[in-house]
């Protein structure tokens, strides 16, 4: 079976072939769902948000410039959908049972079972603290650490100057460090 490039799939989709879009969703579901999940730290919210993002991508597909790479454009649309949704939603405390079990794709370096548990617990705290950050800080943080985006790429996605991204990453990290301390103390 021929594997089509993203741009070709988009073209087919615009011609009315829905299965082409299903293939796009299949290719990028992990990235978009991960983005939504790292921003919300809850499975149900992440699922809704990610579906919303793909629906939006589908709705604005005719605006995509086929001469440019598809993934950055698609990711930008998805980020905007998430960012808008987060800003509308009031900040709330996330109960621990809503946090899905962290399933690392890379084996941990810990050698002892108790080390692994401790690492896992720390990571859970980090994810919780990250999800609690204000959206203007957590979005660039997630883009940086989840997708390893450069400052310029993040600035392009969020459509703000690169200096703003530097400032937000700095503040996001500072806030995260403080929140982690509070969480560890049980505050």
């Amino acid at each position: 079976m021929e594997i089509l490039a993203d741009e070709a799939l988009v073209k087919l989709c615009l011609e009315g072939d829905c299965t082409a879009f299903a293939e796009i969703v299949n290719r990028y579901q992990k990235q978009i769902f991960s983005l939504a999940y790292r921003l919300t730290n809850q499975v149900e919210d992440a699922q809704d948000l990610a579906q919303e993002a793909f629906l939006k991508i589908y709705q604005v597909l005719d605006k995509y410039d086929t001469s440019r790479p598809f993934f950055p454009w698609m990711y930008k649309v998805a980020t905007n959908v998430c960012y808008t949704a987060l800003r509308k939603k009031p900040q709330e405390e996330i109960p621990l049972d809503k946090v899905i079990e962290f399933a690392p794709t890379v084996p941990q370096a810990a050698t002892q079972p108790e080390d692994y548990t401790e690492v896992k617990e720390t990571q859970r705290l980090v994810q919780q603290a990250l999800a609690q950050l204000p959206e203007k800080y957590k979005v660039p943080m997630v883009l940086r650490y989840l997708e390893d985006m450069t400052y310029q790429q993040i600035a392009d996605v969020m459509e703000v100057p690169i200096t703003t991204i530097e400032t937000r990453l700095f503040r996001g990290r500072s806030l995260l460090q403080k929140r982690l301390k509070n969480l560890e103390r049980g505050v």
Binding site: Q29, K30, Q31, F33, S34, Y37, R38, A46, Q47, A50, I100, F102, A103, P104, T105, V106, Q108, V119, T122, Q123, V126, Q127, L130, M141, V142, Y145, L146
Partner: peptide, 8 residues
């Protein structure tokens, strides 16, 4: 290590 991809 905490901010990785998640399987939907």
């Amino acid at each position: 290590s905490s901010c990785t991809l998640v399987q939907p």
